[in-house]
Write a protein that binds this DNA or RNA. Structure first.
Length: 569
DNA sequence: GCCGTTTTCGGCCCGACTGTTTTCAGTCG
């Protein structure tokens, strides 16, 4: 059973109990526990077996019992009891924007509405309007909400959203709008983005909003007022702009950056200190004691300013209180890229061009790691071609200055766990990344053993894009990440954090677990042309979200990770 | 249901908007 399944069960339990009018704080407890389990890297079943479930924040006696039962038997009595007399359609109904448990309960009680379709029908026929507290406007909004829900695209990958928003911010700045920034999950550099929130400060809100709604990329204006504007771009992405007074700017930025869970913790701390925190500022009684900048808000609360990438309520507040926040790795710490392709396989540029581009980015070293022959369609190299490439790398090193080009490969891990290149050849290379490119449908055990076999090979320095996920396209293959990380720790193998924004693989939480286990992380772009070297920033942001410091990152060292002691055993 | 150098019981974030209301309930972020 995956952690995700347990988290889903707890969320469903909360949803159903919400419909039944259960104590909202109980629901919050279930949802918090679900979030913690979803974030967890170790298998929840391991924690159950070892009786460590209650070490997790937000899990006490009650939830421990429910989770243990669910993990052991696949069933949860509490959930089944709650589902008694509730059709699954009711849970769907509550997901319609503007429809909550009260509306759903009312519609079921009076009109026997059990599904989204039945609710839509009740709204269209006018029967809904006859209910107490329901008017024509509400019925109309429910129909709009259903329409919106059916059209919703879901979350978009960070790599697609960020460039769009950056160009939009630049344009606003050219229009003279000051202090304009992206907030929300984008500012936290989450791997996917739900909605786009932009914040600006100024006294003439209307003017700023007008500049915003007049931008060339705007396809449709949804709302335009003094403090808020809302637009759709041509591809249907919604962007909201909010304008606040300078005195509230820091508070608003903090508020709109989130995460929600982080904000709840912060407000709780404020309350404990006799203060009140809102998007307008930090107040003692009626007096605003902070609000102009985020820094002063955190400071008055007795905290250092927590970087947005850490604001997830994953322990950052406790760490901040103890003065133990990590000193996060930065883009400028990166000294090289350990995984790039060239036109020897499916890349677009020559070894020399890639080297020059890497030097331009301030790198000290670059590992050439083309595919091996199992990937024929990508021009994978066989042993003799790879040996030829080693010679070519030597020649390039003689020609280029200011960067060291290292030999390597992205060797394919075959379905049976053997590598697609002889050990004698791998032994000649400076750095070897091993990756899975086929047989994605293998079951968890088979896939895990397959990758463990590669880790045990003494020539393998790093495992590439461990789960093979493509954000917004396909889930990763089923693999026991924690078992891989433990084996990597034992053998001194690094794990790649593939920086391509469609991958970000391993993810932030796996990075954090790697750090805990002492596994080094290699942040690589997997670039197939010179421009893609710039994708490094997505990898660094994800590493930051995983609390990684410079010393945790293999390619943040000045010296290339080759030679004696590079892979201690 | 969870949690605690202010508590083992009594708390649990805060404000805005909407629609249907004469003072508020429901929903959202």
């Amino acid at each position: 059973m995956r952690n995700e399944d347990v988290a889903d069960a707890l969320d469903l339990l909360a949803d159903v109990l919400e419909f039944k009018g259960e104590n909202p704080f109980k629901l919050r407890a279930y949802r918090k526990a679900a979030r913690v389990l979803r974030d967890l890297q170790e298998d929840v079943s391991t924690l159950v077996a070892e009786g460590r479930l209650r070490d997790l924040p937000g899990i006490g006696e009650g939830i421990e019992k429910k989770v243990a039962q669910f993990v052991k038997t696949g069933k949860m009595d509490a959930l089944e009891a709650a589902m008694e007399g509730v059709s699954p359609g009711i849970v769907e109904i509550m997901k319609i924007p503007g429809v909550g448990p009260r509306t759903a309960a009312l519609a079921r009680e009076k009109l026997n509405v059990q599904s989204v379709e039945e609710l839509a029908e009740a709204a269209r026929s006018g029967r809904l309007t006859e209910l107490p507290g329901m008017g024509a406007k509400k019925a109309e909004n429910i129909l709009k909400g259903i329409e919106f829900m059916r059209r919703a695209k879901g979350r978009m990958p960070l790599g697609k959203v960020l460039p769009l928003v950056e160009s939009l911010l630049d344009e606003l700045r050219r229009h003279g709008v000051k202090n304009v920034v992206a907030a929300g999950s984008l500012r936290r550099m989450c791997e996917t983005i739900g909605d786009i929130d932009i914040l600006a400060s100024g006294r003439s809100g209307e003017k700023i909003v007008r500049a915003f709604t007049g931008l060339p990329l705007v396809a449709r204006v949804l709302a335009s007022g003094d403090t808020k504007g809302s637009i759709l771009t041509a591809d249907g992405t919604q962007v909201d702009l909010r304008v606040v007074e300078p005195a509230s700017y820091g508070a608003a930025l903090q508020y709109f950056t989130g995460s929600k869970a982080h904000n709840i913790r912060l407000r709780s701390i404020a309350r404990d200190r006799g203060l009140k925190l809102s998007e307008y500022g930090l107040f003692r009684d009626e007096r605003r004691v902070a609000g102009r900048t985020e820094e002063e808000i955190y400071e008055v609360l007795g905290l250092p300013c927590i970087p947005p990438v850490l604001r997830e309520d994953r322990g950052e507040i406790e760490a901040a209180l103890e003065g133990k926040l990590p000193k996060l790795v930065e883009l400028r710490d990166i000294s090289g890229d350990l995984h790039v392709h060239t036109n020897w396989s499916d890349g677009h540029n020559s070894i020399e061009e890639m080297a020059a581009a890497a030097r331009k980015r301030g790198y000290r070293y670059l590992v050439i790691s083309d595919h091996t022959r199992a990937l024929k369609i990508f021009g994978g190299l066989d042993a003799s071609r790879l040996l030829e490439q080693i010679e070519e790398v030597k020649r390039v090193n003689a020609r280029v200055r200011g960067i060291r080009v290292l030999t390597g490969t992205e060797v394919d891990i075959r379905a049976d766990g053997t590598l697609d290149m002889a050990d004698e050849v791998l032994a000649k290379l400076d750095f070897v990344t091993a990756s899975v490119h086929s047989g994605f449908a293998q079951d968890r055990d088979t896939m895990t053993r397959r990758i463990l076999a590669a880790i045990e090979n003494p020539h393998v320095d790093s495992i590439g894009h461990l789960t093979g996920r493509l954000l917004g396209e396909r889930d990763g293959y089923d693999v026991d990440v924690d078992a891989i990380l433990r084996a990597a720790a034992r053998t001194g193998t690094a794990l790649e954090l593939n920086a391509h924004p469609a991958r970000l693989d391993i993810n932030d939480q796996a990075c954090r677990r790697a750090k805990e286990l002492g596994v080094k992380v290699a942040i690589n772009t997997d670039a197939h042309d010179v421009e893609q070297l710039d994708l490094m920033r997505f990898g660094v942001a994800t590493a930051q979200r995983g609390w990684l410091e410079r010393s945790d990152v293999l390619n943040a060292r000045a010296e290339p990770p080759v030679g004696k002691g590079a892979r201690p055993r």
